[in-house]
Nucleic acid binder design. Sequence first.
DNA 1: CTCCTTACGCACCTTTAGGTTCGTTAACCA
DNA 2: TGGTTAACGAACCTAAAGGTGCGTAAGGAG
Lengths: 125, 125
Amino acid sequence: MKTADISLTICSYTHVLEIISNKWTALVIYALEDGTIRYGEIKNRIEGISQKMLTQTLKQLERDGLVSRKVTPKVPPIVEYTLTSLGESLIPHMRMLKEWAAAHYAQVALAREEYDASFNQTPIE
Amino acid sequence: MKTADISLTICSYTHVLEIISNKWTALVIYALEDGTIRYGEIKNRIEGISQKMLTQTLKQLERDGLVSRKVTPKVPPIVEYTLTSLGESLIPHMRMLKEWAAAHYAQVALAREEYDASFNQTPIE
DNA sequence: CTCCTTACGCACCTTTAGGTTCGTTAACCA
DNA sequence: TGGTTAACGAACCTAAAGGTGCGTAAGGAG
C-alpha cells in the first residue's frame, strides 16, 4: 500500500490554480492577450467587473510576474498593462483548457442535470 | 471602442475553472489517473485531505460526469471510483497546465518575493 | 460481548473571496 | 466656479468555501 504521495502544498496543480483560479483572473488574462491595454479598456471589455475587482486582479497578476504595469503620471492618469513573457508562456496552456470546455462543457451541464434529476424525482411509484 | 465582449457567465475559462478550481479537485483527479481506486486509497494518497472534503469533492466530480462511482454493498462497504471518458479527456489538458507550473512556478515565486520586498523596505535612506 | 472496519451524512464554526460604497487627485473644459 | 475624468485605496458587509467533530451501519475478529 502506498503512503500519501500527493501533497497539496507541493503539487504543481495547486500552484497553477493558485495563480489562475480566482474569479476574474482568467478573463483579465484573456483581455490582455491582444497586447498592451489600458485599465479602463479592460474594464469595458469585461462585462460586470467592478473597479475594485479589476484593480485587485491586476495587482495579483503583477505580483505573480505575469503582467507588467506602466504608469504615465498625467491627470487623469494613464495606466497600461501588458503580459510579460512569463504571462505569455501560460497562454497556450490556458487556451487548451478553454478549448476543452468549449467542446465538452455541454456534456458536463447535461451530467449535472441528470444527477440532480435523480434526486428530485419521487422514488416511490 | 469595443463594448464588453468578455462575459463571465459565457466564457469557457469560467466553465473549466468552475469544474477544477476547488481546493482538492485537481489532486483527486490526479489520484484517479492510474485507474479505478477505492475511497480509502484516495484518502491515503492525498496528504491532509479530510473525509468530508474527499467525499464532497468526489460527489461534485460525479455530478459533473467526470468520475463514476461503483458501490459494493458489503460491510464494511467498498466504494470504487473511476474516471469516465469525459474525465479522461480532460487529463492531457490539465497535464499541460501542470507542466507549465513545474517549469515556471519558481519564477512566479521569485516575482512575488521581489514584489513584496519592494514594499517592506524603508524607502527613506 | 465488544471493538474495529469503511464510507459516508449532518451540524456547526471559521476563514476567505468577493462585492458595494465612498473618498482622493489635479488637470481640463464650459 | 464647479463638474468631469482615470485609476485607484480604504472601510465595511455578505456569501461561499473549507474544516472539525460526531453519529451510523452491520459483519468479522478477538
